[in-house]
Simulated scan of single mutants.
Amino acid sequence: MNPLVVPLVESIGRNFSVVLASGSPRRRELLDRLNLNYKVIPSNFAEDLDKSKFASAADYVISNAEIKAQDVFARIRGQTDKPVLVIGSDTVVVSPSGEILEKPASPQDAAETLKSLSGKTNIVYTGVCLIVGSADAGKVTIEKAVESTKVTFNDLDDEMLEAYVATGEPTDKAGSYGYQANACFFIKEIKGDYYSVMGFPCARFYQMLRDLHQRGVL
């Protein structure tokens, strides 16, 4: 697949030091579809916020995304002559009962999570935080957005459940499944942004870049 060559995006890549604050291969795969010059510096954030302190899953996921971006921004600022653009993102799944589900602790945990989602609809929230700042101690702009997408499972029989967990795929997936991979065989329906379920809402991200450009930030 050839990347999109968008003049605005190319200009940002030339004039800013762009950093993705995530080691996620799925986010890199999606970001690579734009002809954007960027590098990867994963955040050191432990992702250990107390979920009970947040009014909603949307608030929780955008806080994670912002802290990831802030962590990397603080580490790289002053190390380049160019202004900096840091991209932070986070994804969580909310169960039908309202529980925030992140990556499973073990294969057994993944199996239990998938059983709880079988035949039901869960909601995937992905937050994106962009931090733009000059190389010195000048102005900092923070832009945030959240996408929510409903995902409905077919009934997940034991054979499929065991086979899916055995692939190891659930291990690094919020909610213990990856729609873009083998989970396609038991996901019945999706309502919302498919790429947000993958971990990065591409259309919303591009709109954020455009809005920042129109405001003279990028």
Rank of each mutant, 00 (worst) to 15 (best):
L117P: 04
S116Q: 09
K150Y: 05
D158E: 15
L156D: 08
Y125F: 15
V124E: 01
V151E: 01
C129H: 01
F153H: 03
G133S: 07
G127C: 08
V132L: 13
E143R: 12
D136M: 08
A137V: 11
A135V: 11
D155W: 02
S118N: 03
V146Q: 09
Y125E: 09
M160R: 06
E147H: 03
G138W: 13
D157P: 15
D155G: 00
T152L: 04
L156P: 07
E159H: 08
A135Q: 13
S116H: 05
A163T: 12
G127A: 10
T113D: 00
T113H: 00
L130M: 13
G133Y: 02
Y125G: 07
T141N: 11
I131C: 01
C129P: 05
S118Y: 03
A163C: 08
E159C: 00
K139L: 12
E143T: 08
T113C: 11
E143V: 02
C129W: 02
D158W: 01
V146K: 10
K115T: 13
A135C: 11
S118W: 03
G138D: 13
T126H: 06
M160C: 07
A137P: 00
L130D: 13
D157C: 02
G133F: 07
V140Y: 00
V132G: 04
D158Q: 14
I142K: 15
T141P: 00
T149P: 13
V128R: 03
A163N: 14
K115R: 15
D158C: 00
Y125Q: 09
S116G: 08
L130N: 12
L161C: 11
S148I: 00
V128E: 05
S118M: 04
D157E: 11
V146R: 10
A135P: 01
L156E: 08
M160T: 14
S148F: 07
D158F: 00
L117E: 02
K139P: 06
L114P: 03
V140R: 14
D136F: 07
Y125H: 15
I123S: 10
